[in-house]
């Protein structure tokens, strides 16, 4: 029996790395949104900053989703 430990290790490392990265970036985006909600009472730079943070983070997640769709759909390869 031949067992490809390298591939198994790769799956493990990539899966954990990508999952943690995506969820953390998304959490940061949500944090940005929460900051926007908090600063609604006293609108200053914090609101714009929070919004920018959220936009950048969600954009990064959308890019990962797009790559995921690219991987799933064989016609793109």
């Amino acid at each position: 029996m031949h067992l490809d430990w390298t591939a198994l290790g790769q799956v493990t490392a990539v899966s954990i790395g990508v999952t943690v990265a995506v969820v953390c970036v998304f959490a940061l985006g949500v944090l940005g949104l929460a900051r926007t909600d908090d600063s609604r009472e006293h609108p200053d730079g914090a609101r714009a900053l929070g919004l920018t943070q959220a936009a950048l983070c969600f954009l990064a997640c959308a890019a990962v989703v797009a790559y995921g769709i690219y991987l799933i759909v064989p016609q793109f390869h």
Binding site: I16, V20, V22, V23, C24, A27, L28, A34
Partner: peptide, 10 residues
């Protein structure tokens, strides 16, 4: 790990 960090961050 992802869940733990998500709760920690938020």
């Amino acid at each position: 790990i992802a869940t733990y960090l998500a709760y920690k961050l938020t």
